[in-house]
Amino acid sequence: MPDLPDTTSSRTEETTLPAPSEAVATNEINLPEAMAADQLYGTAPPADSIGQETTGGYLEGTSLWRDAWKRLKKNKLAMVGGVVTLIIIFASLFGPYIVKAYNGFDYATIPAERELIEARPPSLLHPMGTDPQGRDILARVLYGGRISLMVGIISTFVSLLIGVTYGSVAGYLGGRIDSVMMRVVDVLFAIPYMMLVIVLLALFEKSLFLLFAALGAVSWLTMARIVRGQVLSLKHQEFVEAARSIGVPTWKIILRHLVPNTLSPVIVYATLTVPSVMLQEAFLSYLGLGVQAPLSSWGTLASEGAQNIAIFPWMMIFPGVVMALTLFSLNFVGDGLRDALDPQMRKS
């Protein structure tokens, strides 16, 4: 690359300089609207609508979400990611029944004929081949998807619950309580957490519940920091003062006025937590500590395949590719959502 220094210098002047000004311009246009929406949003929630407002009709009028949707639609990668994710979710939900109707296999079906109990490469009857027990890999991948997605979503929910509660309480109460609580988070951050999870899962009887709890407990730290930062910046705004002045109790201020306003970064971060949790589940399953037989997740399938890769490569390739594709799409959706919801915070 002899021309590298040249092109970089001319390029940076051409491309990076206009880009910031564009970004600044969009910020300037969107910021007031977003703030207005935030404030509206903070003061307006009807008493019992927390947790439903994203789907609720009253958001129609606010422009933050509409704006975000507009921006998201322009982001082709994110849209493709979203469609792929939806396809995979639907496939895992309904696919097993279709496969069952097509070739009569579900995730545990072992063929009755002796000569069929062997690993066979992909064929018309078994689009992803079979494993050494003669089980249909497509059916197993689709079933595994249910478990993997369930682990991803439920563990993320656990981390949301802990992180949002912790972060908003710390941020709102402030002062010494805040600094102690955040100090604890710093300490926990430095601890090799996965190690303790491995110990936990190796020592106790493995159950899905323990897995959810362990993975959720690992990933709430960043969430707590994000929420705390948001709450800190919000708690001196007028709508909070107003609520306090009419004697709304603290927990109600946090729950009804502050938490809903932190929603957009929380949604973004949650979207990015799902793939990382799924990856950790696969990790643990590979070590024999995650999802236990007869259940199977993509992690267990890919690790079974990894042991046979030289002989039956399809056993690893299909689960591995489906899993990577899912994580890939979820990451793109998360990135796209961040860019859409948070134009000022375009970080990696």
């Binding site: 696969a282 990790f283 990894a306 890769i309 899993m323 990577a324 594709l325 990451n331």
Partner: peptide
């Protein structure tokens, strides 16, 4: 992004292969 999405126990056997 692919690197982030690919579990290392999938990448490892592929490299071995």
């Amino acid at each position: 992004m692919l690197g982030i999405s690919m579990p290392n126990f999938v990448l490892g056997p592929i490299l071995v292969l």
